[in-house]
Design a protein around this nucleic acid. Structure first.
Lengths: 199, 199, 199, 199
DNA sequence: TATGAATGAGAATTCATTCAT
DNA sequence: AATGAATGAATTCTCATTCAT
């Protein structure tokens, strides 16, 4: 019970639960996944789940929180990094495609199951999401101010346009398909840049 | 008993059921909408619903079938119409945005609830959807053959990119928001065209 | 609409309903057969069924009434016919086996579904059945009075013993099996006679 | 919490459910007994029933399994016991009558509700039943080989004949009637022996 | 004589959650 | 930290029957 094996085995339970929940939510949707199925997949009992998570809803919320945290960190880094605004927007766009494909389960869940969260949790997630979008939008606005991007485009519409495409990756992208993540990322970023750049 | 109210009232039951189901599915999702709620909203009993529809699944399938029929017809007309390929692609893109916004409930349902259909119904819907996408993709390919559109883009990726944006309209577009359907349609079509056109 | 085709076609409806009901009740049981299935099999609608039969129960009752009428008539004839009491008992026993096999659907229904009749109809059927058994028992008693059959056997027990076997034909007899109706009838009658005859 | 009442009360739930289900199935048939009635009779909730039994079907299957186990054990013991083959056949026949009467509810269920089991469960029960019958038939064949029983009888027909009578006990035997189990058993066994023995 | 839309009550089953241990 | 029995409310769907036409 020092911070060795004991702690590790213990810590593994919530992690396993979260991993199996993610897999199952992506596979069959939040409402179609029963708590029983999750605990069976994780090899524990219901009591254990409710020991670590307040509710099934909590579990879904955790999935969101994790992926949002990850994407926000990466965006911050890229946006604050070096290079022209066009380079940074392209990098950010390509990166979100790659991480969305690398975490395709999360992507699927995000787009299918958000409205199944309780209203207050939904609000929290939306707020996080908005912050993320705002950071992205700021890049577009920066490009417009520098007259690199077309001024007539509404920045928020650009963001909604692009993230619509990103969120939908889960519906058509197949790991065993002909395209790897980088190819998709490159094409998506390319299309975005062509859309916004002054010709 | 004349061909007025009597006939109409009779015919109205399945239509009313479909309308209320659409509204409720969009509002709270398929799994979160109970058959009881639908029949109460339509002012009939469960027996009546099951007299007309084989299952709750059937109801959802009907919603899909209706919107797919509508969109396919419109696309056919535009694609086969006059004008340059760029004009026709722009028109098709703008049109699907407008009709998606005009039928925002259907759009929401489409993107959230398709995976809640039974496997075989899901297959049928996907097949219809694929046909629709193929028609759209043919426009992109036509433009590439004419060297109006950039040859390096994969046409199917362009289609997935654009329809991701369209399907996501339901998650952010608000009827009472600052943008009307035409404005969104115009900007979305504009971004698509910039993405694909040879500069 | 004289008593030719018109009457015949009309008369055919209840008969068809009864035939299909018999088949279905035998196949899956009374409770497992829905009125809808019966009318579909008969090619009519529910209204037609309820025009001719007061209820689903009535339909089952008719099935019973028909088979009981048939068996009672035959028993009367045989019992009142010529020959020694042993010959008549043997003939009656063999005959009921043959007719039970020839109407195996009715036999199955009889033994499985009687208790699903409404209490009063059940009482009526039981009364008919009792009369039938009494006539059979009278043969046994006659044989005992003549000292042809063993006196120590209770006649009613003999009847219950034998008819248990008969009623169970439906559970094991197969039309496409190795035995034809006559062979079974002969063996069953033989076993009955050996059971009761003074050695 | 000692090993007395506490343990017993806990263990009692599935047992109570099974007991009440047996009673109700015998009283009004499987299809006519609702899960609600069973749990009310047992003083628990539906959730509890489904905690222990996978389905209503499972419950019925358990009833069968229990009675088949019991009868098979007894038959094995008697058949392998001492005495002439005629003595053993008589003992086996009398015993199955006595236990059928002692468990008359099970007997009723057996004969009325087996066909209401799901196909696969039905198959399992039939297989068990067949084994039981085969053991019984082996006794008949043994007697024929020893020329104690008549060679012209088909052993399987004898078994079907006799067990038809046994299974039908539930339809006519009344605990408060004039005959006790032993009397019926003695007469049934007597009739069977007379049927098969060489005169 | 027959239709078929509609009813309303009841069916089996599922499930998130709690709680004594 | 974890169990698993039990709850109770909700879910989809079925069905015999009625009735205006």
């Amino acid at each position: 019970m020092a911070d060795g094996a004991g702690t590790k085995a213990t810590a593994a339970v919530p992690r396993r639960l979260l991993a199996e929940a993610t897999r199952l939510f992506a596979e069959r949707g939040f409402d179609r996944t029963s708590v029983q199925e999750i605990v069976e997949a994780a090899g524990v009992t219901k009591g254990a789940l409710y020991h670590y998570f307040g509710s099934k809803d909590d579990l879904l919320h955790e999935v969101y929180a994790r992926v949002l945290r990850l994407q926000t960190e990466r965006l911050e880094q890229i946006a604050a990094g070096g290079g022209s605004v066009a380079q940074r927007l392209r990098a950010a766009a390509a990166d979100v495609v790659v991480t969305s494909i690398e975490n395709l389960d999360d992507t699927k869940i995000f787009f299918r199951s958000m409205h199944q969260l309780s209203p207050e949790k939904q609000k929290a997630v939306r707020a996080d999401r908005r912050r993320y979008h705002e950071r992205f939008r700021a890049l577009v606005e920066e490009g417009q101010r520098e007259s690199v991007f077309r001024a007539e485009l509404r920045p928020d519409l650009v963001v909604d346009y692009f993230f619509g495409s990103v969120h939908h990756l889960g519906t058509w992208y197949r790991e065993d398909g002909p395209l790897d993540a980088e190819q998709v990322a490159s094409d998506f970023a390319d299309m975005l840049l062509y859309s916004v750049r002054r010709p």
